[in-house]
Amino acid sequence: MTAPLFYLGAHQPHWLWNAEFPLFVSHRQLTRKARLRPATCRWALDSGGFTELSLNGRWLTSPGQYARAATRYAEHLGAPDFMSQQDWMCEPFMIERTGLSVREHQERTVVNYLELRTLAPALPWLPVLQGWTLSDYLRCIDLYASAGVDLAALPRVGLGSVCRRQSTGEIGHIVATLAGRGLRLHGFGVKTGGLQRYGHQLASADSMAWSYNARHLPPLPDCAGHKNCVNCLPYATRWRGRLLAGMAARGHQTDLLALQAHEGSAP
Score class of each variant (00 low, 15 high):
134 L>N: 12
37 R>I: 01
193 G>M: 12
15 W>I: 03
120 A>C: 09
74 A>L: 04
31 T>Q: 15
83 M>N: 05
83 M>W: 01
129 L>R: 09
58 R>I: 08
62 S>E: 12
36 L>H: 00
56 N>K: 03
17 W>I: 01
11 H>P: 08
143 L>Q: 15
191 K>R: 14
46 D>F: 00
97 R>Q: 13
202 L>C: 03
29 Q>Y: 12
202 L>Y: 11
78 G>I: 03
226 H>Y: 03
74 A>Y: 01
12 Q>G: 00
70 A>D: 08
134 L>W: 11
105 H>T: 00
18 N>V: 07
211 S>T: 13
37 R>F: 00
227 K>Q: 09
77 L>W: 00
87 D>N: 07
212 Y>T: 10
93 F>C: 02
144 Y>T: 03
64 G>H: 08
98 T>R: 09
19 A>G: 04
245 A>R: 14
120 A>M: 04
94 M>W: 08
60 L>V: 14
218 P>V: 10
137 Y>C: 02
102 V>A: 11
118 T>F: 08
200 H>A: 15
74 A>V: 14
157 V>H: 00
48 G>F: 13
256 L>E: 01
66 Y>V: 04
246 G>T: 15
173 H>E: 14
20 E>L: 14
214 A>F: 07
248 A>D: 02
264 G>E: 12
140 C>W: 03
154 L>N: 10
110 V>T: 01
16 L>R: 00
219 P>V: 05
127 P>G: 07
209 A>L: 05
65 Q>T: 12
180 G>K: 03
171 I>E: 07
139 R>I: 05
220 L>Q: 15
23 L>C: 10
222 D>P: 05
188 F>G: 03
201 Q>N: 08
199 G>P: 06
53 L>C: 04
155 P>V: 05
196 Q>M: 09
29 Q>T: 15
204 S>I: 04
53 L>D: 05
229 C>D: 13
17 W>F: 15
251 G>T: 06
225 G>M: 12
88 W>F: 15
164 R>C: 04
62 S>F: 07
217 L>Q: 14
209 A>C: 07
240 R>H: 06
256 L>F: 08
